[in-house]
Design a binder for these strands. Structure first.
Lengths: 237, 237
DNA sequence: CGTAAAATTGATATTTCTCAATGAGAGTGG
DNA sequence: CCACTCTCATTGAGAAATATCAATTTTACG
């Protein structure tokens, strides 16, 4: 069949083929809605390190992450950085109340996002309470995560932070690549440090220490959990 | 006029008289809706230190804080505590995705809440998208705040934390008691410490230091900002 | 008043950071 | 294919910030 004969989405993509169809905000839409929704989004590819949006920018779009990993962060005036989260496929970005983004987001490695202009998206959502509920659910899930992370930042030691991070990241990776004791770490040590409220040196030393104790093995592009139970004990729940 | 002659709400209260009518989740309701809504909530008073709900409890209600201050916190198994926020009148509590509360909440001083059973509240919301939007807005606002707090916890020094806390709390107090350089602090030093990821001793020492430098004055039940500009400079934006 | 809880202060310990050097891996051009 | 360079990661030594432990002092409350 010639491609030209097929009805195609505005960017040559079908939502129905989308990798995150079932997990993203779109999971609340039925087949009919999806066909209309399809026309609202456009796929955008970004290279490693590219910025999708910056804190304080006027926010004109929502984004659905389709592929890759993004870091979400805030900067202090003197350059100190706090990574407030990593986004994975299925995550929905761009919600805010002020009309401005409250954090910056950039690509870690190659990334594909589905971009929606705010106005048409807002119109689409208007009379679709189930979609609004879905968005609300995602926001509340984020909020949960944010609170967990506050506990980590405010009350855990460096060892606990690193252990909890490895377990948490492994958990999230499961959803993408399936259960495994090998944890891929696409982000840099500096990113990890800025996520955990530590310095890069402390993260590095903690990894080395865990490896010396036979708890993990540092491999190219990630780590392997040799003794997951020990890591869990270290994370202090 | 005899009280018995007046039509009264289910608990002898009118939403229309409610102190948080304009700021709370209810601000999205019109007069007609409010009369129906009135029957869903019941006012509950709590004494100092009483717990409204605990982390991991099955959540059966939503709460609208009417009067007083609450601390919202999470505990680690060994007892370390992180306060994830303070709730003030108008705040809406109890949203979650898991059906269980993800943090504990207790009263700091006397508190009045408006309690809504989840099921009827959920039914009421069902065909009222504006209320759902309002709830979503509150969740996103919370999320913003949570991210700001992550920056504080992960990347700020003790001095900066304390200064930022005083300014932030002053800002929130404005909404209740009007603009002033006197900042009431209804919570204990321990609460402040657990909110900022510090120890009580560090908080106390930082207050004392600020006072010695003539930046604040420690008064009964709060502090006075003698040099707000200095405090802002210390908070590092 | 007297007692308990909360807050402050001091002395010391510990953790994590900072600064500096070295090492390893990826990409580049000769 | 190999030096070269650049970035990122690791390691070490010492400094700084904050925690811990212990003792008062102050405040709240019956």
């Amino acid at each position: 069949m010639k491609p030209s004969l097929v009805t195609i989405g505005p960017n040559g993509h079908f939502c129905s083929d989308c990798a995150v169809r079932e997990s993203a905000v779109c999971s609340s839409l039925d087949a009919v809605e999806l066909r209309e929704f399809e026309h609202l989004g456009r796929r955008v590819r970004l290279g490693s390190g590219e910025t999708v949006f910056s804190e304080e920018d006027i926010s004109t779009s929502f984004y659905n992450l389709l592929e890759g990993v993004m870091r979400l962060y805030k900067l202090l005036p003197d350059g100190r950085r706090q990574i407030v989260g990593f986004a994975l496929p299925g995550d929905f970005l761009g919600m805010n109340v002020s009309g401005r983004h409250n954090f910056s987001a950039d690509a870690i490695g190659a990334v594909t996002v589905c971009q929606f202009a705010k106005t048409p998206f807002g119109r689409f959502i208007e009379d679709r309470a189930h979609l609004l509920r879905r968005i609300n659910e995602l926001a509340i899930r984020e909020l949960d995560h944010a609170r967990d992370h506050m506990v980590l930042l405010g009350r855990r030691s460096a060892d606990e932070k690193v252990a909890a991070f490895l377990l948490g990241w492994r958990e999230r990776s499961f959803a993408l690549k399936g259960r495994s004791d090998t944890v891929p770490l696409p982000m840099s040590r500096q990113d990890i440090a800025d996520y955990l409220g530590l310095t890069i040196e402390t993260v590095s030393r903690t990894f080395t220490k865990l490896e010396r104790h036979g708890v993990i093995e540092i491999i190219h592009g990630g780590i392997r959990l040799l003794d997951p139970a020990r890591v869990e004990a270290l994370a202090a729940a």
